[in-house]
Structures are given as C-alpha cells and as structure tokens.
Design a protein around this nucleic acid. Structure first.
Ligand code: MN
Ligand code: MN
Ligand code: ZN
Ligand code: ZN
Lengths: 149, 149
DNA sequence: CTGTGAATGCAACTGAGTCGCAACTACGAG
DNA sequence: CTCGTAGTTGCGACTCAGTTGCATTCACAG
C-alpha cells in the first residue's frame, strides 16, 4: 500500500490520540487488501498469517476503536448467513449493499440517495447524521434471469 | 386488536401453509401492542406474562418464520447498545430508523427515499428488492441543542 | 373424532464477543 | 538517545444470544 496512505493513516490516528501499534497497522492493512467483506473471525485468521501471535481480543478491541473513530464501518449484510458482523474501510463515495439470499452474493451500489437521506433527515427532523447504513435484500439480476425460465 | 386484523393474520399465515398456534398468535399480539422495538429477550418476557410456559426456542423459531414470511422485520439499530436484534411488525409505509448514541433514543422517519432506492437499484442493476433496511446514527435535535451551549 | 405431520418445551450445546489482569510497548519528556 | 508511564496486548475464563436433538403435544385435514 502506498506510503501516502500509510502517512495519512498514522496522521488520522495520532490526531485522535490513538497509538499506532504493530497490531493496529496490521489489521488495517488486512482490511485494505481484503477482496470482500470480512467478519471478525476471518480478519483474525488473515492477520495471523502475518503475525501468528495476534489475539482475538485485540481484533475486537481494535474494531471497536476503528468504528468509533470513523475509519471502519460495521455491516451485518442483513445476516444472510449467521450472526456475525462484517467490516470494511470507510471510503469517500457512499455506497449501499445488496444481498441476494439465493446465491449468497453481496454487491455494492453507489448512489447519492445516501447523502440525500442525510440532508432530508436534517432538514425535517433536526437530526445530524454521522453514519448511514443501507442494506437491501432481494433477487440479483443473475438469479432473476435464471428464475424466469 | 380488531377482529379484522386477526382474520387477515390467520389468512396470511394459512395461505403460506403455516399453522396458527397459540404461541404464534401470542407473539404477534405482543409485537403489535409493544410501544417500541423489542429484542428477543424482551419479547419472551412480555409473552411470558400471558403464557408463562412459552420457551425461548419457540420465540427464535417463530421470529425466523415471521421474518421469512415478511410479517416481521429485523433491525439491529446499529447496535447502539449490545449485540441483540430488534423486531417490529412490517407496516405499509416505509420508514427509516434514527439512533442517537448520546441519549439512546430511537426514532422513526417516514420517507419515500426507500421506494426510490428500490426503484433505482432495479433500474440500474436489475436487482429486485424484497426488503430494504436503512439505519442512521447521529445526534438528535435535543442533544444537538444541548450541545450548542 | 381421529390420525398424523408439524410445532413445542426442555436441556444441552455452540460460538461470538467481553473482561480482568499481568506483561509489554509506543511515545513524549527530559 | 534513554527512561517512565499510560495505554495496549495476550491470555484464559467468562457471558449470554441463539441453535439443536429429541420426546411430547397439538393444529387441522379428512
Ligand atoms: Mn461495502
Ligand atoms: Mn446485526
Ligand atoms: Zn443471486
Ligand atoms: Zn439524542
């Protein structure tokens, strides 16, 4: 991962008075390089491939920290399978998650409706949103076409 | 609760080949009359006030049934407190949940953006939504005003 | 009324997430 | 570049939401 990203990460953390430990750096790196969405168990497994001594408790404590710092978002993807939660680095563009129970696929969908919703909630209710989570369950295109026959 | 509602409930269930047992009727009644959002433990407690013999396993099995039948929605309210999930009867008007971590209040917000999102997802992605869950975390009006001083 | 498959209660189990504590370490003051 | 210390980690025990197998009970079609 680019040096710039590392720099800004250390910055982002120290700005908040958070120490940049070996474990925290590793966990963020794993999240950055993960192809999809990881749950806590998968995150631990992946991190252990680099540092076999890292502990489950550290993963949970770090996730809590990163969530409240706004660096990571927690999803449950409508619990399509199991009770776990999933984690992803917070990005700039807002996106929504689409889950298809038939094939188990989670896809992402960018839309400005997230921002629109935050604005509407503020205008009509005086509520200042700090985080919006939108999860959609349904039939994906592929499953829909397969069903049509 | 109106007889009509009861009738349509029995209908709704038997249409799907679901037996209307004493326990299922009770759990739906408790959900209907609940002031706010209940988690599984609270639902069990409330139901036990009427039928002390009802079991935890029945609550979970029934919730699963009602969820997959589309009669009940599961929320996690962004897990403002704890890991539990919350349940509410599905209504006609779409609504969104607003959670304020500072005062712990959950409020509801009606908006047609839910429908708009479902339409946009279908148009742009070919994804047919069967359920949309939108949860917003932030500072409520009261807490915002208190903070301004 | 009766028979039967579905649903329930019970009790044991699973596994995600938490917590207290002793050892360790990031990092700022000197 | 030390050193001191508050913050962090690993560990192991723990909590508690949710699940499961099985014997008993019950809804409801015939
Ligand atoms: Mn995502
Ligand atoms: Mn959840
Ligand atoms: Zn699909
Ligand atoms: Zn508030």
């Amino acid at each position: 991962m680019p040096v710039a990203a590392r720099g800004s990460l250390a910055e982002a953390l120290s700005l908040r008075g958070i120490r940049l430990t070996r474990q925290r750096r590793l966990l963020l790196e794993v999240l950055d390089n993960a192809p999809g969405h990881l749950n806590a168990r998968e995150l631990l497994q992946a991190a252990r491939r680099t540092d076999p001594t890292i502990d489950r408790a550290t993963v949970y404590r770090t996730l809590h920290l990163l969530k409240t710092s706004g660096l990571v978002d927690e999803l449950d993807l409508l619990h399509l399978e199991g009770e776990e939660h999933y984690y992803e680095r917070r990005r700039t563009g807002d996106h929504v998650h689409l889950g298809c129970p038939q094939c188990g696929t989670i896809s992402e969908f960018e839309t400005d409706l997230v921002t629109k919703l935050a604005q509407e909630v503020h205008r009509r209710e005086g509520f200042t949103a700090t985080g919006v989570r939108i999860e959609v369950r349904g039939t994906c295109k592929a499953c829909g076409e397969a069903q049509a026959r």
